[in-house]
Amino acid sequence: MEKNLQTTTKITWCPGCTNSQILVAFRQAVGELIEGGKLKQENLVAFAGIGCHGKISDYINVNTFTSLHGRLISAMTGAKCANPKLTIVGFSGDGDSYDEGLEHLVHAAKRNSDVNLFVHDNRLFALTTGQFDAVSPKGFKGKSTPFGSIEEPLNPLLLMISAGATFVARTYAGDIEGTKKIMQAAIAHKGFSYVDIIQPCITFFDSRDYFKDAIYWIKDPFPTDDQRRAIEKVTEKIGGKIPLGIFYNVQKPTFEEELWK
């Protein structure tokens, strides 16, 4: 099945790029759903932003819409409104959705549009050869901040919970199995599903060793319907550890349901 989702386009990510791991996780995630009869391939639409992450649309043999930089989320909502039968996933970058298109991210969460957003979070702009962005750590030395960035980074998960996202999760690109499961859970969720995928950029900000040690999966059972616990978890600062998993997962009427009522 997985093969059916591939294209013949030459992959132009850097050799060893962690985006490939996300690509594999996605093909597996939807391959299984299609095989299991839970999803029709023709009803799947993948949106992409502009950045290294966005190249993914050329590498998957499904309906794709490669938007402008930062604008995929609006287009995703538009498509879902137009045809609520479609399953909409979006591949975005941290520059794409935490800088250029932040307003669309916040509003999609607020209106609980029934779409799934996967953010390839490498904590910098990669395609434009390495500048700081909204989630780069303070002091980050990139091409536009040679003396270190002077801004504190944003906590996008906290932002998403407070904006009204009904599914908030984080995963690590290097953990393909974990990412696959989170993607499947996101797709199964009705409402706005937001997944931050830690995706170290091996060329401009190789933090693989750091993350390998820092990440841990939150233990089941975690009460995913408790907003306060979710906020605590995504703001947790214990020994520099970074929790992965589904932090928040609740049901609310979706924008498209309300629209077509």
Partner: peptide, 17 residues
């Protein structure tokens, strides 16, 4: 939508669909 940029990009997504 939240602004004109979203207005037109939403429309393009809906037209695609």
């Amino acid at each position: 939508p939240e602004n004109e940029i979203s207005v037109i990009n939403m429309a393009l997504g809906a037209i695609y669909a």
